[in-house]
Structures are given as structure tokens and as C-alpha cells.
């Protein structure tokens, strides 16, 4: 367990609270999980670049005592890419909502995964656009009501974990806010992993998504996460029908393969030393 005072020492608590998030929101728990993971890994605050895009999740960096950057909508990953490439010694962590990373930022998401650049991507999936007031997201399940799907959503959603893996990401896990300790473990592994590491965290948005779909209070929604969670091992033995509406949790991929920023450094060194390809300058 972590001392509360240790956790507090990572917050810019003097000025920045209360947080912007609604009562019952899962993002605060996720922020706590990230802090605890970093405490356990003993990474100095100065070595962490903590980047976000726009949206509810995008507001997280301002509360945290790292090198923080709140960028433009959907673009956290390319900003983070620039930081990682110029200072490869830094730990670069991106937090992003489902709309930010998969809709407007979808292209950057697959390309960061393809490059397998050493960035930890914490994807907070609450199935909806919260900051703008409850519109459909690329993760909203079919049939669910949002302000721009007033008759129920008819667009099939993304599976972010599968997307990252098929695009080339070398670590991918899914956890829930309900099982926050388990999720903290995934975050730790992801930060330690040398390559593009995605942790998708299923979170609750009682104010928008919950209310519009009669899912009850934050407590009810958390209990639903518990009820619907299926560990990946168990899921392998279940039929597709049985898995409908379930949240498969666990580590889906963990593989060591060529990482982009170090590959670039090696290549550039070869060019400098003149040991590169014959036709190189």
C-alpha cells in the first residue's frame, strides 16, 4: 500500500483542486493508479513527460507534478513523439480519452503503434464524449443512447486493444476502474515496457453515459464493470455469444521488439561513424 502523503506529493495540490471531473467519474481513480505505479517504479518526477490531448482525460496533466503538456485535440501522441525523439532518456506517458485517441487522433494512434515508439498510452474508455456533453464516441456500444445518437447508436465500435496490436504495438492490456489495483499493475508493466504500450481502462461516466442509458449511479456502474469483467484466460474458453457485452481484461500482448527511438539513435550513429549503408550520405 502507498502512504497517502506519498501520493499527495505527486499532486500540484496547492492550487489545482477540486478537479474538474464530475462526482463519480473514474478518471480520478486512474490518476491515482498512475501515481502509485510511478511511486513503485521510483522514476524521478523530472524524468517524466506527461502529455494529454483534449477532453475530460486531457485535463489530468495539470494536477500532476511532472513535465506536463496539455496539447490539442487528438494530437497528444505526435507531440509525445517529438519529446521522446529529442529526449529519449525521458519516460513519456500519454493519457487520452477514447474520442481523443481513436476518433480525431486515430491516425496518430495506429502510426505510434506501428513505429513501436517507447510511449506509454493510458487510454481512458468511458464510451462517450464527456467534456462536450455526451456525444457518441468510436467506443460507444451499439444501441446505446448519446446526444448525437438519440435513437440509439448504430455504428460499430472499435476494439482499441486489438487495434493497437494489429498496428504493431508491442504491449496491450485492458483493465477497469473497479479492479484498480490490477489495473495499476498493468500501468506499471506498460511504463516499464520498452515500446508502444497501451493500457485501455474501462471507466464510468455516470453523468453523461450512465444517465442517458439508465445505468444508475457511479457505484452501480462500477459494480457492472465487476459483473461484466472476464479475465482473458477465461474468455478464451467462452463462445462469442457469451462474450457479448463483456469486458475482457488482462494483458493481450507483451513482446520485446525493435523500438523506434533507439533504432533511430543507432541508425544515426552509424551515419555519423560512417558505418551505415554504402549509399548513405
Amino acid at each position: 500500500m502507498h502512504e497517502l502523503s506519498d501520493v499527495y506529493s505527486y499532486l500540484r495540490w496547492k492550487k489545482r483542486f477540486p478537479a474538474v471531473w464530475c462526482p463519480g467519474c473514474g478518471i480520478g481513480s486512474i490518476m491515482g493508479a498512475i501515481i502509485r505505479a510511478i511511486i513503485d517504479l521510483e522514476i524521478p518526477k523530472d524524468d517524466i513527460a506527461f502529455i494529454s490531448g483534449i477532453g475530460c482525460t486531457g485535463r489530468m496533466p495539470v494536477y500532476l507534478d511532472f513535465n506536463t503538456m496539455h496539447t490539442t485535440h487528438g494530437r497528444a501522441l505526435p507531440f509525445a513523439t517529438g519529446i521522446k525523439m529529442h529526449r529519449p532518456e525521458m519516460k513519456v506517458i500519454v493519457v487520452s480519452g477514447d474520442g481523443d485517441s481513436l476518433a480525431i487522433g486515430g491516425n496518430h494512434f495506429i502510426h505510434a503503434a506501428r513505429r513501436n515508439i517507447d510511449i506509454t498510452m493510458i487510454l481512458v474508455n468511458n464510451s462517450i464524449y464527456g467534456m462536450t456533453g455526451g456525444q457518441v464516441a468510436p467506443t460507444t456500444p451499439i444501441g446505446k443512447v448519446t446526444h448525437t445518437m438519440p435513437y440509439g447508436n448504430y455504428e460499430p465500435p472499435f476494439n482499441p486493444v486489438e487495434l493497437a496490436v494489429s498496428a504493431g504495438g508491442s504491449f496491450a492490456a485492458r483493465g477497469t476502474v473497479f479492479s484498480i489495483l490490477q489495473t495499476t499493475g498493468y500501468i506499471k508493466k506498460a511504463i516499464k515496457h520498452p515500446g508502444f504500450a497501451l493500457v485501455e481502462i474501462i471507466s464510468q461516466c455516470p453523468v453523461q453515459y450512465g444517465r442517458m442509458n439508465n445505468l444508475g449511479s457511479a457505484r452501480d456502474m462500477l459494480l457492472m464493470q465487476k459483473k461484466n469483467s472476464v479475465p482473458i484466460k477465461k474468455a478464451k474458453e467462452m463462445s462469442e455469444e457469451d462474450l457479448d457485452g463483456k469486458i475482457i481484461t488482462g494483458i493481450f500482448k507483451e513482446e520485446i521488439k525493435t523500438e523506434y527511438s533507439s533504432a533511430y539513435r543507432n541508425f544515426a550513429k552509424e551515419i555519423r561513424d560512417g558505418t551505415g549503408r554504402e549509399d548513405s550520405p
Partner: peptide, 24 residues
């Protein structure tokens, strides 16, 4: 000793150079 990257689009390009600028 510099970095060159061909990005996925122009938005990513300018985002990356601003990120790099933040890193010095």
C-alpha cells in the same frame, strides 16, 4: 545528431516539432 521524422500527416508533423521544442 539531429532527428528527422516523416510523420503520418502535416498535423502530426507540426505537433511533433512543437513537442520536440518543448523538450528543447
Amino acid at each position: 545528431g539531429g532527428t528527422f521524422m516523416q510523420m503520418e500527416d502535416e498535423i502530426a508533423s507540426i505537433a511533433a516539432i512543437i513537442g520536440a521544442s518543448a523538450a528543447g
